[in-house]
């Protein structure tokens, strides 16, 4: 079964890439746009450190590392779950009916339909730069790297949960707009270390819109600044959140099947 879904995902990714590449102007523009966006924030950070030695106690490479982690996580989320942005239209136009009448998991299919080739291309240099910066920082141990990767995974589960909830809302309430945008807009605060924020804002973005769990926790693990208890917290939070989101999705789907017309 897993094999089927892996094969299917690969195929969907290829199809989606084909779709994107068939729009050449858009493809090039988005690619450039994303690089400019990245480059611009990067330049901002460099400019900050041209005039100051620290931001909230972090040095240049550390701040850059936070920023890169943000990009990696954000891009991975987009890579896997981008179908959510078309989902609202799919439901509105009635095409979702096709999806649920097929022998495939409707949630998987809808979220994975729009894998973004551009993000995939974008990810490669980012990861390379991250490795370089990681070396510059110097003192990472195997434990740090391992913790970083694990916590990124947990963060991705949280992101998945957010997307699932958003999908559930779309299917449940016909008037609901795309709640996923709340997440997308909030993600921007993950570009910088969380220490710049006041305690209340930190709390908000840790537990309610868990950007800090998704981005800052892994980054701190790498920088050897993380209290290990956070690994447990992150795991628990991700599991509960994901479980909760799946429950909501099931309810939403039941409702859809009772009310679609």
């Amino acid at each position: 079964m897993i094999k089927k879904y892996l094969k299917l995902w690969k195929l969907l990714a290829i199809l989606s890439a084909g779709s994107i590449l068939s729009n050449r102007i858009d493809f090039v523009s988005y690619l450039f746009g994303k690089f400019i966006r990245f480059g611009f924030f990067f330049a901002f950070i460099l400019a900050i450190f041209a005039h100051s030695n620290s931001l909230a106690g972090y040095g240049k490479y550390e701040v850059i590392f936070f920023f890169l982690t943000f990009n990696i996580v954000d891009t991975l989320g987009q890579l896997f779950f981008r179908g959510i942005y078309d989902f609202r239209n799919e439901v509105r136009l009635g095409n979702f009916d096709y999806t649920i009448s097929k022998p495939v998991n409707a949630l998987f299919f809808s979220l994975s339909r729009a894998v973004d080739l551009i993000d995939f291309i974008f990810l490669i240099p980012i990861v390379l730069i991250a490795i370089y910066v990681g070396f510059q920082i110097g003192h990472a141990t195997i434990y740090n790297i391992f913790a970083y990767i694990i916590l990124l995974f947990f963060g991705l589960f949280v992101i998945l949960g957010i997307h699932i909830i958003s999908a559930a809302l779309i299917v449940w309430k016909t008037e609901a707009e795309n709640a996923i945008w709340l997440y997308r807009e909030s993600m921007t605060i993950g570009r910088f270390p969380p220490e710049i924020f006041s305690p209340k804002i930190k709390f908000l973005f840790t537990y309610f819109m868990p950007i800090i769990i998704i981005i800052s926790i892994p980054a701190k693990a790498f920088l050897n600044m993380l209290n290990p208890v956070w690994i447990l917290i992150s795991f628990l939070y991700a599991s509960l959140f994901l479980g909760f989101s799946v429950l909501i999705w099931r309810r939403g789907l039941r409702h859809y099947s009772s009310a679609s017309s």
């Binding site: 199809l15 084909g18 779709s19 068939s22 729009n23 136009l93 009635g94 095409n95 009916d97 096709y98």
Partner: peptide, 12 residues
């Protein structure tokens, strides 16, 4: 099969 609703990908 539903008339006016497609399951085919538009750009491909």
């Amino acid at each position: 099969v539903m008339g006016q609703k497609n399951q085919l990908w538009w750009d491909l």
